[in-house]
């Protein structure tokens, strides 16, 4: 049979099977995740929320509760200005009157503590916080060429 002689046919069939398995597993975990979020989405949890203005002032709001990070910030009484990017979420431009500055290359970014500060990586209103998580907003100096943000000290 000619198609059996062509090894690429077999490889293509195996890859097709692999693609189906991967897609099924992806779909399964996506549904599990959305189901979990739907079940827990309405439950605010306490976190350790901090803000660092990069001028030596760091204030902690330990025990602040929230569902998302943005929710916790609002419940902590912060004044937050943000631009919405639709499904991608909010981009924070100003916190408590301190606005990002292109001239001095300083922007707001949030970091979470996991054996050191790790950059948040998603919009604050899309990030569902976990119990007793430590999160800090830092007015970071950002390298204008690489867009790399300075870690909080």
């Amino acid at each position: 049979m000619s198609f059996l002689k062509n090894r690429w046919t077999i490889i293509a069939l195996v890859m097709l099977c692999w693609a189906i398995v991967s897609s099924s597993v992806l779909g399964y975990y996506y549904y599990q995740y959305t189901d979990l979020v739907a079940r827990l989405g309405g439950v605010p949890v306490p976190i350790n929320l901090g803000i660092d203005y990069a001028n030596g002032t760091r204030i902690w709001f330990n025990g602040t509760v929230g569902v998302t990070l943005y929710d916790a910030m609002i419940r902590a009484g912060w004044r937050v200005n943000a631009t919405s990017f639709g499904a991608m979420g909010l981009y924070v431009t100003s916190i408590n009157g301190i606005t990002e500055s292109l001239q001095s290359s300083r922007f707001w970014g949030w970091w979470t503590w996991m054996y050191g500060w790790s950059h948040g990586g998603s919009a604050c209103n899309k990030y569902i916080v976990t119990i007793n998580e430590t999160v800090i907003w830092y007015y970071s100096y950002t390298d204008p060429t690489t867009w790399e943000m300075t870690r909080p000290p």
Partner: peptide, 13 residues
């Protein structure tokens, strides 16, 4: 389909 994916994948494999 997706909630039952763990069973279908096991069946397929």
């Amino acid at each position: 389909i997706f909630f039952g994916a763990q069973f279908t994948v096991l069946h397929e494999v």
